[in-house]
Design a protein around this nucleic acid. Structure first.
Length: 861
RNA sequence: GCCUGGGUGGCGGAAUUGGUAGACGCAAGGGACUUAAAAUCCCUCGGUACUUGUGACUGUGCGAGUUCGAUUCUCGCCCCAGGCACCA
């Protein structure tokens, strides 16, 4: 037999087989231990990219491995099908978003099938279908009832020329991506999910999610941004009323010499109403509002403010504090007002210097005394309080508590907690999303659509011009309806939901994709599968998607739709796929096929090799998965993605590395073909068969390989080292002397070794191994074969190398039987010729013996 | 500025608990096979100088420390990547 490895033929064959036999279809089985493996589902942008290939390959190896380990594995795939690109395609190419999306889905599905991923395709879901989003609308109504949904005014990016709302990524340097007009701000009524209602639980669980990478949890904690402090009231100097501020530094309250208010804060115009400076202040506020938008991305801008001709009083010193509007105070954090302590806050210090405002030191540095005359920056360190009345002499860390108590006692403040986390704005003034199930009635206000009227189906017959706001808002047949309350004429809400809502519960729906009864989640099935045991995806979703999904899970739990607190037990964030970039001085970034012998094809100039960066169209450094599949096949693509780097690290693309992976598959194929005739007649050898010499070594190596591959996959997902272990075993097979055709004992072992190789590689390169498995004469499906366990006895070395060190330096090595006694080894070491050269007649101070590893002889000098 | 990772041959990466640094692959060089090439198979491959060895010295970003012994632990510094960034 002399067949060549033909990847395309083999892969097509097995993919069809798996599909026809429904090999990867699963159902709940209480007898078996479940394992839910999920990769972040893709947005159907057109075709899959290398990032998908890598992500889904990593997931597939784990899924197939767990399956072979006997788990009941749920491994689903679907489509995050709503979103802006579909709408843009509609505007640009006059194709309906639904058509565009569905065409993309069917193409990308065929690509995923060509990769040989072990999905249960019967569970495929697409979030743009009413069967999916109707339940999302139901959850919206539940949340509305519970007060977890509310409406408030909030600013959006607005292009005055296109008359449309722009997402943040559609604003390029302050200009509209389509028409380059200056983007403004527009205040609209928008819907919000009250994620802050769960903020403490979300934060708490950051310490309980032990299967998540530390840095993701740190990012989430920072994003939530809890800070404890005080709300303090500063009475107005004249008239009644007060200004409330939030501070974490109430220990510096005695040093507060002026008050700052966010420029956009309504209080600003209130305070100057009717005063001479009213117009100046209005101008200032308008300027800041514009500045804010344009310079948002710039480094850090100059602190600016304007005096409001008003004063309040420091509640502890009764000092008169001038009130300023300032550009650097955030309107939507805390109360939008800040007490300024220029001596102990760098921003306040800079502001005070610019506008000549008074400084009072209230914390004295233990190192060098602070002097308001000579200070060049604020002192933010710790110290002892001064100029602080009864608190003088107290350590500032203690004063934090003491002053908080004092404020509460005199009714001027209370301890509070602030979070950086804001509620989740889910309104999108767009067409291609799930309609928000609300009816706006002039009489009754916003009225939820009755549950019995769901789903509110997104209509198809709309026009896409890209101008004049959401196409939905112009469709009379959609808007015009009757109010469920008063039965009068009313208008449907035309906002759709943020697509992050769909991705916040799709993993629940995968458990019961066809369940058509309320609430779209079959508790029995969801309880069996959830939570997701292993979730895999890009680090770019470390905050938003993962936080939203956690919140949504808790909300659904409290509605009784779910029984879990957290959706994802273990999280793996895989690195990016990168490749080197090339630039032509004339033509900018160029792709490899625009380069000939290091020169640009268009102009002949030398091409500059640039940095290695994440694959992207604009950098022209993408590799199309189709090319790989055509050239080498899915198994090579999978093998390379796993072998080039461990999953959490960035993967640097290398065409030669791909060649190497292909070579290894051929090498494995060839050696098995080479032996096929000889081993077909024999059984795989039994482990208790007596062997010696080279054959014993081979069996030992095989069992060591099983051990290594198992722990590398199981404990660390380090597939690169698992693969290299199998490579070593294949190399050893090439090295042994070919046994005679009638040496049954040797051939039995060869067969055993080859079967081990095939099984260990099965999750990684499923097609070639399935084919080899059949060629070795097996009837069963390799995907169902039980993962082997290793025999510790067979894996054990009979001879070990002991390193002899003198003063910590390796000087010699000796081989001894594995069970050699310590005394004997020490004696051998002392007599060792090479070691003796270094010991000579020097006195041996001590000997350190590390069993089975080394002996260190410590001598003087 | 703050937080989190990371820095090992020409390159991607190994070294699981402090115990033989550089597994495996790529690239490079050499050999075998071949009329030839490709493919394949085998060998060499961190650096330095030399007396060319079954050797010596040196070597995991830099500098110190702990230890019999440090890529691994501690401290200080440098560099790279990612995240957050006027959050009071």
């Amino acid at each position: 037999m002399n067949r060549k490895y033909n990847a395309q033929e083999i892969e097509g064959k097995w993919q069809k087989y798996w599909e026809d036999a429904k090999t990867f279809k699963v159902h709940e089985d209480p007898q078996k231990k479940k394992y839910y493996l999920l990769e972040m589902f893709p947005y159907p942008s057109g075709k899959i990219h290398m990032g998908h290939v890598r992500n889904y390959t990593i997931g597939d190896v784990i899924a197939r491995y767990k399956r072979m380990k006997g788990f009941n594995v749920l491994h689903p795939m679907g489509w995050d099908a709503f979103g802006m690109p579909a709408e843009n395609a509609a505007i640009e190419r006059d194709i309906h978003p639904a058509t565009w999306t569905n065409e993309n889905i069917s193409y990308m599905r065929s690509q995923l099938k060509r990769m040989g991923f072990s999905y249960d395709w019967d569970r495929e879901i697409s979030t743009c279908e009413p069967e999916y989003y109707r339940w999302e609308q139901l959850f919206f109504l539940w949340m509305y009832k519970k007060g977890l949904v509310y409406k408030k005014t909030s600013a959006v990016n607005w292009c005055p020329k296109c008359q449309t709302v722009l997402a943040n990524e559609q604003v390029e340097a302050g200009l509209c991506w389509r028409c380059s007009s200056e983007v403004g701000e527009k205040v609209l009524d928008q819907w919000f999910f009250k994620i802050t209602a769960y903020v403490e639980e979300l934060l708490d669980y950051c310490d309980k999610l032990t299967g998540w990478p530390e840095r993701v949890l740190t990012m989430q904690k920072n994003w939530i941004g809890k800070s404890c402090g005080c709300e303090v009231s500063f009475p107005m100097a004249e008239g009644s009323g007060d200004i409330k501020v939030f501070t974490t530094r109430q220990d510096t309250l005695y040093g507060a010499t002026f008050m700052l208010v966010a420029a956009e804060h309504p209080l600003v115009m209130e305070l100057v109403k009717g005063k001479a400076i009213e117009n100046d202040v209005r101008e200032f506020v308008e300027k800041i509002k514009k500045q804010d938008r344009l310079l948002r991305t710039s480094e850090s801008y100059e602190k600016e403010g304007i005096f409001l001709d008003a004063y309040c009083l420091n509640p502890l010193t009764t000092r008169k504090m001038p009130i300023y509007a300032a550009n650097f105070v955030l309107a939507d954090y805390g109360t939008g007002c800040v007490m300024a302590v220029p001596t102990h806050d760098q921003r306040d210090f800079e502001f005070a210097k610019k506008y000549n405002l008074p400084l009072v030191v209230v914390i004295q540095s233990p190192d060098k005394p602070l002097n308001t005359e000579t200070m060049t920056e604020a002192y933010v360190g710790e110290g002892v309080l001064v100029h602080s009345g009864p608190f003088d002499g107290m350590e500032n860390t203690k004063a934090l508590e003491a002053i908080a108590q004092h404020l509460e006692a005199i009714g001027r403040g209370k301890r509070t907690v602030q979070y950086r986390l804001r509620d989740w704005g889910i309104s999108r003034q767009r067409y291609w999303g799930a309609p928000i199930p609300v009816i706006n009635c002039e009489q009754c206000g916003a009225v939820p659509v009755p549950e019995s009227d769901l789903p509110v189906v997104l209509p198809r017959n709309v026009e896409f011009t890209g101008e004049g706001g959401s196409p939905l808002a112009k469709l009379r047949s959609f808007i015009e309806t009757t109010c469920p309350c008063c039965k009068g004429k009313a208008k449907r809400e035309t906002d759709t939901m943020d697509t992050f809502v769909e991705s916040s519960w799709y993993f629940d729906r995968f458990c019961c994709p066809d369940y058509s009864e309320e609430p779209g989640l079959d508790r029995r099935k969801v309880d069996y599968w959830m939570p997701v045991d292993q979730y895999i995806g890009g680090i770019e979703h470390a905050i938003l998607h993962l936080l939203y999904a956690r919140f949504y899970t808790k909300a659904l739990r409290d509605f009784g739709a779910l029984g879990v607190d957290e959706p994802f037990t273990n999280l793996l964030t895989q690195g990016m796929v990168c490749k080197e970039t090339m630039r032509c001085p004339q033509h900018g970034y160029v792709s490899p096929d625009e380069v000939n012998n290091g020169k640009c094809k268009h102009c002949g100039t030398d091409v500059i090799i640039g940095k290695t960066e994440k694959m992207s169209k604009s950098l022209k450094n993408i590799v199309d998965p189709n090319y790989l599949l055509d050239q080498y096949g899915a198994d090579t693509a999978r093998l390379f993605c796993l072998f080039a780097a461990p999953p959490e690290k960035d993967l640097e693309w290398s065409d030669q590395g791909v060649e190497g992976s292909f070579r290894f598959l051929n090498r494995t194929w060839r050696i098995i073909m080479d032996y096929l005739d000889d081993i077909q007649a024999v059984e795989s050898s039994a482990t208790d068969e007596e062997l010696d010499g080279e054959l014993k070594n081979l069996r030992r190596k095989a069992h060591q390989t099983i051990k290594r591959v198992t722990t590398d996959i199981e404990d660390r997902f380090h597939f690169n080292t698992a693969i290299s272990a199998v490579m070593e075993l294949v190399n050893l097979l090439y090295q042994i002397n070919r046994p005679a055709a009638d040496d049954k004992k040797a051939l039995r072992l060869i067969r055993e070794t080859m079967e081990t190789i095939v099984i260990l590689l099965a999750p990684i390169v499923p097609h070639i191994t399935e084919e080899l498995w059949k060629m070795l004469g097996h009837k069963s499906e390799l995907a169902d074969v039980t993962w082997p366990s290793y025999d510790p006895l067979a894996a054990e070395e009979e001879e070990i190398t002991i390193v002899i060190q003198v003063n910590g330096k390796v000087r010699s090595r000796i081989n001894v039987p594995a069970d050699e006694k310590e005394e004997k080894i020490k004696a051998l070491a002392r007599e060792d010729e090479k070691a003796l050269k270094f010991i000579k007649d020097k006195k041996i101070l001590k000997e350190i013996y590390v069993p089975k590893k080394l002996i260190n002889i410590v001598i003087h000098g």
